[in-house]
Amino acid sequence: MSVAELEHLAKKEKRSRIKVRYLAICHFLEGKSRTEIARYLRVARGSVNKWVTLYLTDGIDSLKDTPNPGRPSRLTPQQLESVAAFVKERSSSTYGGRLQAKDVGEFIHTQFGVEYEGRNVYRLLHQLGFSWITSRSKHPKQNEEAQRLFKNLPHGNDP
Rank of each mutant, 00 (worst) to 15 (best):
P140L: 07
H155A: 11
T66V: 12
V104T: 03
Y95D: 13
V83C: 06
E106K: 02
D61T: 13
C26I: 06
P77I: 03
R15D: 15
G96L: 02
Q142R: 14
N120Q: 13
R90D: 01
E5D: 13
V121G: 02
L149F: 12
L153D: 05
V121L: 00
D61V: 04
C26H: 04
E81W: 05
K19I: 01
H126E: 15
C26F: 09
L149R: 14
V20L: 14
Q79E: 11
V48T: 01
I25F: 05
S73C: 12
T53R: 13
S62A: 15
A44G: 10
A85F: 06
G97H: 03
Y22C: 05
N152S: 15
T134P: 00
T94L: 10
R45A: 07
R39C: 10
Y122D: 02
E145K: 10
Q100K: 14
S135A: 11
V20R: 12
S47A: 09
K14G: 12
T134V: 15
P154D: 09
N49H: 00
T94F: 13
S92E: 06
R15I: 13
R71M: 07
E5F: 02
S131P: 01
Y116Q: 00
K32M: 10
L80Y: 00
E30P: 05
S2L: 11
S92C: 08
G113C: 06
F28D: 06
D58K: 10
W51C: 00
E81M: 05
V48D: 06
S137I: 11
L153T: 01
G31A: 09
E106F: 04
E144M: 11
R74C: 03
K141E: 12
E81I: 06
G113D: 03
I37E: 09
A4K: 14
